[in-house]
Design a protein around this nucleic acid. Structure first.
Length: 119
DNA sequence: TCCATGACAAGAG
DNA sequence: GCTCTTGCCATGG
C-alpha cells in the first residue's frame, strides 16, 4: 500500500461514505466525485477494502444498475441482500432502477448525476 | 521498465 | 436485449 495512492483511495472511501442508506452510486459517479482517474480505480480501491472499514461498498454498482460480478461466486447475491435490507428493490431482471435510487448529491460536482426533471 | 490484470464505461454490430 | 472492442490507469510480478 503506497502512500501516494492512499490519498486517492481515501477520497474514494470518503465519497462512498457519503452515499446515504437506501441509495446507490455508480463507479463512474464515484470516480468523478472523488476526482479519481476512472471507474476502474474505484473498483480497485473497493477491492482493497477491509471488512471492518465501515465503508458502504455495497452501495456502489455499475452503470447498468447491476451488481458487478465478482471472482467469488455467490458474493453478488450477498451484496444484493445487503441492498435489499436497506430497502432497495430490484426489478425482475435483477437490476436497480437508477432513475429512482441513484444518489444525487447537490453540490457543484453533481453534474454527472444531473438528469432531466422527471416529468 | 514492460506486461498482464481488473468489483468499469461507452460505443458498435 | 446481447456480446465484443476499446479506452482508462493503478497495481504487482
Amino acid at each position: 500500500v503506497t502512500r501516494r495512492t492512499s490519498q486517492t483511495y481515501d477520497r474514494i472511501y470518503r465519497t462512498v461514505k457519503r452515499i446515504p442508506k437506501g441509495r446507490v452510486a455508480t463507479y463512474g459517479q464515484v470516480a468523478v466525485l472523488a476526482a479519481a482517474s476512472g471507474p476502474r480505480q474505484v473498483g480497485y480501491a473497493l477491492n482493497a477494502l477491509e471488512a471492518n472499514s465501515g465503508v458502504p461498498w455495497h452501495r456502489v454498482i455499475n452503470a447498468q444498475g447491476r451488481v458487478s460480478p465478482r471472482a467469488q461466486p455467490g458474493w453478488e447475491q450477498v451484496q444484493r441482500g445487503m441492498l435489499e435490507a436497506e430497502g432497495l428493490r430490484f426489478d425482475e431482471h435483477g437490476r436497480i432502477p437508477l432513475a429512482r435510487y441513484q444518489w444525487k448529491p447537490r453540490d457543484a460536482l453533481s453534474r454527472f448525476t444531473a438528469r432531466k426533471p422527471c416529468r
